[in-house]
Design a protein around this nucleic acid. Structure first.
Lengths: 211, 211
DNA sequence: CTCGTCCTCAGGGTTTCCCCCGATGTAAGA
DNA sequence: TCTTACATCGGGGGAAACCCTGAGGACGAG
């Protein structure tokens, strides 16, 4: 039986190297490629046969979501499992939309990851329990939900998170204070939060704002 | 020559296991103990001889700073190197205060960590470049800076970050709204921020609040 | 005992947030 | 063409945040 050929894309060197060693210890697994650079991974696609790609999401430069989209347009049979520090909204919906077959948290243990790889390799899916619960909550809680923010709203949310007042934002964007407040309100609705504190947590978790 | 005996304390299983494998590959290093639980580590101190402890800071329950304090009160000769995802303020000062001899970011590579371990084991220090730069900036920029928060303030800041209003906090803590506002103001002063947005970013970076 | 720190509380003020309502113009799509 | 989504702007009002000042009690260190 052929080993499952795995690639690891993660910018944290220690984590990536360690993960490689851990996976190579597992019977039937073989890490055939690992890199911290998503672009390099795209270039290597034709040179190394890969079954499963373990893809970090938060990376400088090109992020895991974009890489996944590009990879799957080139190699539709390759299976991508997303890795992330956070279990929260936005991330995984975007990753699923990009075509990822699984989603595992970095705080998972070896056995969960092994399970995920085997499930996905056999044509299934794997989403860690945290994710499933959040998704279920999303549906039952039918907040208007994960409406994407408009580009203007994304511009505003970044400034809000930086602590600028509506006044300051209006000056920065050359629009009226009232317009800023409208955007704020719409963002609050979409995020399902009720004040700045909640918004910031939401923005960070959904990668609209980075610390 | 005796191997350097290393313990790894980190709640992220994959990272910890991987790190253990990586370090065991290094000539002269041996990971003799690893755990996700700080309390368990404290109990094990007498049973396993340890030279170096690699200590994660962000952990549920007891954090790396408290563990470090307790460990060093029991075993002053043990050398603690802090591991952290973030390079930002507060963390490392608290860790240094607790007695850590080094500070390495999780995004470091194997060679940097190896260097850090050797330096600390020989009685030196090791602080990653990011940290040193921030410290230098701190001094030149002499913000009144890292006044520690009082315990009450830490309690308040967590609730503020959860999006509670002063009214709600006062009910939760059984104190007056005015008292809450006083604490808020004092926190704002110490943090050097001017509104909730800034405060939340500061609190996250300084680990007074976790996402 | 004094000093400093911390926690507590208050008055009174300005600013900002947050929410209600409504409105116009524009551009993309059915 | 009609609809929908988006961005823009406004009035008004209550709630909360924010800023300043002052002050009393507790408690530990020197």
């Amino acid at each position: 039986m052929m080993d499952i050929q795995i690639a690891v894309i993660d910018d944290h060197d220690l984590f990536r190297e360690g993960l490689t060693l851990v996976l190579n210890q597992v019977q039937g697994f073989q890490v055939v490629y690992d890199t911290s650079d998503g672009f390099r991974f795209l270039e290597m696609l034709d040179q190394v046969p890969i079954d499963i790609a373990l893809m970090d999401i938060e990376m400088p430069g090109i992020n895991g979501i974009e890489i996944t989209e590009k990879v799957l347009s080139l190699k539709p049979d390759l299976k991508v499992i997303a890795l992330s520090m956070f279990s929260d909204t936005g991330h995984y919906t975007q990753m699923i939309h990009a075509g990822a077959k699984g989603f595992v948290l970095k705080k998972a243990n070896k056995f969960e990851l092994e399970q995920a790889i085997r499930a996905v390799h056999q044509g299934g899916n794997y989403f860690s329990q945290d994710i499933l619960q959040k998704m279920a909550f999303r549906y039952t809680n039918h907040t208007v939900g994960c409406d994407q923010l408009t580009s203007r709203e994304i511009g505003v949310i970044a400034l809000v998170c930086q602590g600028l007042t509506s006044q300051e934002i209006s000056e920065r964007l050359y629009i009226s204070v009232k317009t800023v407040e409208t955007h704020r309100s719409n963002i609050f609705l979409k995020a399902g939060v009720k004040n700045i504190a909640g918004l910031i947590m939401w923005a960070i978790k959904n990668q609209y704002y980075n610390i």
